[in-house]
Design a protein around this nucleic acid. Structure first.
Lengths: 163, 163
DNA sequence: CAGATGTCAGAAATACTGATATGG
DNA sequence: CCCATATCAGTAGTTCTGACATCT
C-alpha cells in the first residue's frame, strides 16, 4: 500500500523505517507527486498563453509530427478521443491549427499548425522548456539517463501481459 | 518541448539523437507515461472492488493515519478539497468511513475507517500492492533507491522558489 | 488581522459508456 | 469479419473560480 499521501502531517503515526518494503511503496508515491508538481508548474506558465496542458500537448505533437489524426493526438496527449475533439476544435477556432473538412484517404483528418500556431508553440514552448530544465537541474547527465531507463522499466513492467 | 507524445507513429519525422537536450525532454515524457500506465493498472484492479483511485487513496491515507481532515485527505490524494467532499461522502454512504457530525475542536471533522473500511482496504490494498510490486520488479534495490532520490530531486527543483 | 479549514454554487473540461458509420 | 477511425449523446466525476463562515 502506498501510491499516495503527502507531506501534510503524516509524520505522526507512520515513521518509515528506511528499509523493508517501504521503498517500493514510495515509488508510486513520489511518481505521483512529481507529476503533480510538474502539472502545477506547467499550468502556471501555460496560463498566460491561454493554453491548457492538453492544448499545449496538441500543439507540441503537431509541431513535432505534422498531420496527426485525432486519435493519434489523443493517445499522444493521454486524453480520450472524445476529449481531443474538443481540444482540436478550440485550437481550430483560434486559428492555431487547420483541418480538412473531408478525408482525402480513409477517415483520418490530418491536423496541421498554422503560422500562428507555430508562433505560439515557439513562445509557449520556451516557457515549458524552462520548467523541464528546472526539473532536472539537480541531476547529472548520467542520473537523467538512469532515471529515464528506470521509468521505462517500470512502464514495461506495468504494460506487459500477465494472466 | 516534450512532456508528451506516445508510441503511435512518432517514428516518422523525429528520430531522437540519443544525446543533446533530447534526454531532458524525455524525462517529462516518460514521467507522464509511467503515471498513465500506473493509473490504468490501478483502475483495473480497483474496479472489482467498486473503488475509484481517489476513493482508494482516501482509504489508504486513513488506514495509515486515522482521523485525517477533509483538507488533509485532499492534499494527500492530490485532489481538490471540493472533490474530496464527494469522495468522503461516497465512502461514508457505503459505511466504509465515519465522520462526526460536529467538530469537537476547531472546524476539522476527523474521518476514520469503519471495520468494513478496514476490511476493504486490506483486500484492495493487496491488489494494489501487486501492481506496485510488478512496476518495480525489473529494478534492483539500489535502482529503486536512486529512482526515488532522482524523483525527489525533480520535485524539489519544481517546487522551490524562483523569482 | 492572517491562515487553515469546511462547505456551497456555478461554469468548464474531461472521462466513461454506448452507439453509429466509414474505410483498410 | 475484424479493427481503427471519427463523431455524437448522456451521465458522472473533477477542476476551477469565487464566495462565506468558523476556528486558531
Amino acid at each position: 500500500m502506498a501510491i499516495l499521501c503527502q507531506d501534510a502531517d503524516m509524520s505522526q503515526g507512520h515513521r518509515p523505517n528506511d528499509d523493508e518494503d517501504v521503498l517500493e511503496e514510495r515509488v508510486g508515491y513520489v511518481l505521483k507527486q512529481a507529476v503533480a508538481a510538474l502539472r502545477t508548474a506547467l499550468d502556471s506558465v501555460l496560463r498566460p498563453h491561454d493554453l491548457t496542458l492538453p492544448q499545449y500537448a496538441c500543439l507540441e505533437l503537431l509541431g513535432r509530427t505534422p498531420g496527426l489524426s485525432n486519435s493519434q493526438l489523443a493517445r499522444g496527449a493521454f486524453v480520450t478521443r472524445q476529449s481531443m475533439i474538443g481540444v482540436v476544435r478550440g485550437l481550430q477556432g483560434r486559428g492555431l491549427v487547420t483541418r480538412p473538412a473531408v478525408a482525402a484517404r480513409g477517415r483520418s483528418l490530418p491536423t496541421r499548425l498554422t503560422p500562428a500556431g507555430q508562433a505560439l508553440l515557439r513562445t509557449a514552448g520556451a516557457d515549458v522548456q524552462d520548467i523541464e530544465t528546472r526539473m532536472v537541474a539537480g541531476l547529472g547527465p548520467e542520473q537523467r539517463e538512469s532515471l529515464v531507463r528506470a521509468l521505462s522499466t517500470c512502464i514495461a513492467g506495468l504494460t506487459q501481459d500477465h494472466g
